Simulated scan of single mutants.
Amino acid sequence: MLKNSSLNRRIREFVTWANHEVDRHGLPEQPIAEDPHGAIGTSRLRRSLPGTSPDAPVD
């Protein structure tokens, strides 16, 4: 099982990679933007995914 710190690092690395791919493919309208409420981590990732609800039970 991964620790929260490892998951948060992987999320940050994913955002960096995804934004690099946006640049590489010339899609400036599709980056993962900075969040004014702080870093996207394990406690906030699910709420940022389309079609999910912050009130939904965690699996």
Rank of each mutant, 00 (worst) to 15 (best):
E29M: 07
T42R: 03
D23H: 06
A18M: 09
T16P: 00
R44E: 09
W17L: 09
L2Q: 07
D59S: 03
S48D: 10
S53W: 13
P54V: 15
S6G: 11
P50L: 09
N19H: 04
G26F: 07
T52P: 00
G41Q: 08
V15R: 09
K3D: 07
A18I: 08
R47N: 15
A18L: 14
I11C: 03
R12F: 05
E21M: 14
A56P: 00
F14H: 14
R46C: 12
G38M: 07
V15D: 00
G51K: 09
S6T: 11
N8A: 12
R44A: 06
L27N: 07
S53A: 12
V22E: 02
R44T: 15
K3P: 00
R24V: 13
T52G: 11
P28S: 01
E13P: 00
N4R: 09
E29L: 11
L2D: 01
S43G: 05
S5R: 12
L27E: 11
K3W: 04
S53F: 08
I32H: 02
N4W: 02
D35V: 02
D59N: 03
T52R: 13
G26P: 10
L49M: 15
P28N: 06
I32V: 15
L2R: 12
W17P: 00
D55E: 15
S48T: 10
I40L: 08
E29K: 05
T42E: 11
T42V: 09
D55T: 15
R10W: 06
T42D: 05
L2F: 05
R9G: 11
N4P: 08
G26D: 14
V58S: 08
L7Q: 10
D23T: 10
P28Q: 04
I11S: 07
S6I: 04
L45Y: 00
R44C: 03
H25G: 06
N19F: 01
F14S: 14
P31T: 09
N19I: 05
I32Q: 04
G41P: 04
N4A: 13
L45P: 01
A56V: 00
L7N: 02
G51L: 10
H20D: 12
V58L: 14
E34D: 13
N8T: 01
A18E: 08
P50E: 04
E13Q: 04
G51P: 14
R12K: 07
R47Y: 05
P57D: 15
R46L: 06
E21T: 13
H37A: 12
D23L: 05
P28A: 01
G38E: 08
L2M: 02
P54Y: 11
S6L: 07
R9C: 11
V58N: 02
D59G: 04
A39S: 04
K3L: 13
G51Q: 10
P36V: 11
P50A: 15
D59T: 02
H25R: 14
K3G: 04
R9I: 09
M1R: 08
A56E: 01
R46H: 02
D23R: 07
P57T: 15
W17G: 00
N19A: 05
I11Y: 08
S53H: 15
S6V: 11
R10D: 03
M1I: 01
Q30N: 11
Q30G: 05
E34H: 05
P36T: 08
S43L: 04
A56D: 14
V22D: 00
D59A: 11
K3C: 04
D23Y: 01
V58F: 06
R46S: 09
Q30I: 05
V58G: 02
R12T: 05
P57E: 15
